[in-house]
Every structure is written in C-alpha cells, then in structure tokens.
Amino acid sequence: MTFVPIDITPHTHVDARSDLGLHQGTEDVICIRDVSYAYDARPALQHITLHVKRGSILGIIGPNGGGKSTLMKLMLGVIQPDSGSISILGRSPREACSNGSLVGYVPQRHVLDWAFPISVRQVVTLGLIGRKKFLGGFTRQQRQQVQAALQAVEMAHLADQPIGGLSGGQQQRVFIARALVNQPQILFLDEPTTGIDQAGQEKFLRMLLELKKTLNLTLVMVSHDLRSVVASCDRVACLSRTLHYHDRPQGLSPDVLFKVFQCDLDAVLDQHSHTHDSSCCDHDHAPVGPAQATFVPLPFAPPALRPSPVSTSQRKTPAP
C-alpha cells in the first residue's frame, strides 16, 4: 500500500477541533503558555502551549529525546521554564506539587533501587510526608488513608512485603497508591507501562481508568508506548521539541505519527509497509529521504491508526 506524499508546514499542524490549545477559564487544570526550555544551549522545548481540561486523560507521546520528560519536570516544578508560564490549578507547579493534595506523581519505575529495604506500606506512607508534623509520626487517620490507597489499587494484601520482591505491575500500583494517598486532583504518570508485560498492561490501564472515574481525576501520561496511550487517553499531544499535534487519538494520522517519531516509527509499529516522500519530513532535524514505515492495527486502535490512504482533515494531497 503506497501513501501519497504529504505536505505539512512545520509546527502548525494543530488540529483546529482540539481543545488542547485553547484556554477555557476554570475548566483548565493545567495551563502551559508558550513555554521554552533549553539545557545549556541545546533547546529541549520550544513554544509549548497546552491547556488540560478537568477530567480529561492526556497522553503525551513522542520520540526519545523529544522533551517528554522535560515537560513533565516543568509541570512538576522540578525545573523552571526559560520563558513562558505554567500554572496548575491556578498555582505555580512547585506549590501545587509540594502540597500533594493537588498533584500526584508516579515516576518512571527504573529510577529506583529495588534492593532498598522498605515495605510497600512504608513506600505509600512516604507520600504523606508533606502533611507530617515536624518531629511527630503519622496520625491514625493518615495510616487509614494509606490503607485506603492500598485497597484502591488492590495491594492491601501485600502491604508488608518488601517492595523489591514485587512484580513490575505490582510495583507500579504501589507508586500509584503513594500518589493517591493525598487524594490529588491531577495524576501525572511517567512511562507508566514500562516493564509491565502485555497482559499486565491491559489490566493496569483498566484499573487506571476505573480509578480516574471513581476519584474524579485528571490524568496526564507521558509515554513512548503508543498502544497504552491510544487505549486509554481521550486527548493526545505529540512532542518532539515542539508540540506537533493535539487532539483525541482518533485524529492521530499516520503522517503525524511519522513526523513525531521519525526513525522510531519502525520500532513502534510494524506490518503493512508504506512509503513517505521527503516532503513530509520538513522537520528541522529530520533525516530527509524516503523512509519505510509500517503499521499494525492495534487491538484497540481507532480507525485512523489503521493503514489508510484517505487523508484526514489536515492532509493535503498534492495536485496530480
């Protein structure tokens, strides 16, 4: 199946139907306005504008080195933007995150040392550290909160196990419990499905969606795992230094994916090959030239992700 060459002006393919670029007053829980960030002289993010609505599930996808983690760190207040502003529930990111009752954060799994001698319950209790009285211990009510969080992620029966012995999915649940123990309104997840196998991922995402519903959360998920994003998110932002596209995953067209992932595409999707002309690779650091990109219909993929030569609203097919 051959695709016709696609011509897209760089950095302007924001879906007009998407609400991610629009500020909608109090509906927005996260407002990122024209944010740029550079490591020394190397730009990591340029002119990012993003407004996340209350109750939505935003997936941020993009290639390695595309700035996903940088954007996450900015939203968590770990680093400060060079220009532009970020507000989370009307506060600065630092303020919003240190409180704990506004923002919960589930970090990428592998950054932790798993031989660490600590029990599941203790890990979850640490989430309450901002609420602890100086010199005091944790109150009975706080201990009950810990138990409730463990029950919410169905980990209460393993509460006294050392965390190092749990499986990938179980450990991820523990970290969600730690993020939930303060009853936050927004939950950030960094590569949540890394290290969980296929069967586990599906269950994991189902649990996440249930938690979102019962606790009325807004979810922001950073992932290079397209499947998990497509399966669970109702809005998607593709990040490769600039924000390339944002809309519901159904609007994600193969050409946008190709543009964002560039060479990564082969690793992400396979089967049905199709060719791209160099004109679709107008990205400033893109390897220009015909590229082989292949697609596989994902088990839960919306129609737009299945290989189709039909253009979406954004695609312009050149005149014959």
């Binding site: 770990v78 409180n99 970090p107 932790l112 600590i118 640490l126 550290i129």
Partner: peptide, 18 residues
C-alpha cells in the same frame, strides 16, 4: 522519614516538597 525518602528516591521526594 525525610531521610528515608531522599534515600529511596530523591526526585520524588523533591516533588513532594521535601
């Protein structure tokens, strides 16, 4: 608890306001 937290995961501790 603060020491345990930074020992376990420094970045996470910073996010939690430690």
């Amino acid at each position: 608890h603060q020491f345990i937290y930074i020992t376990l995961d420094e970045e996470m501790a910073r996010v939690n306001g430690v």
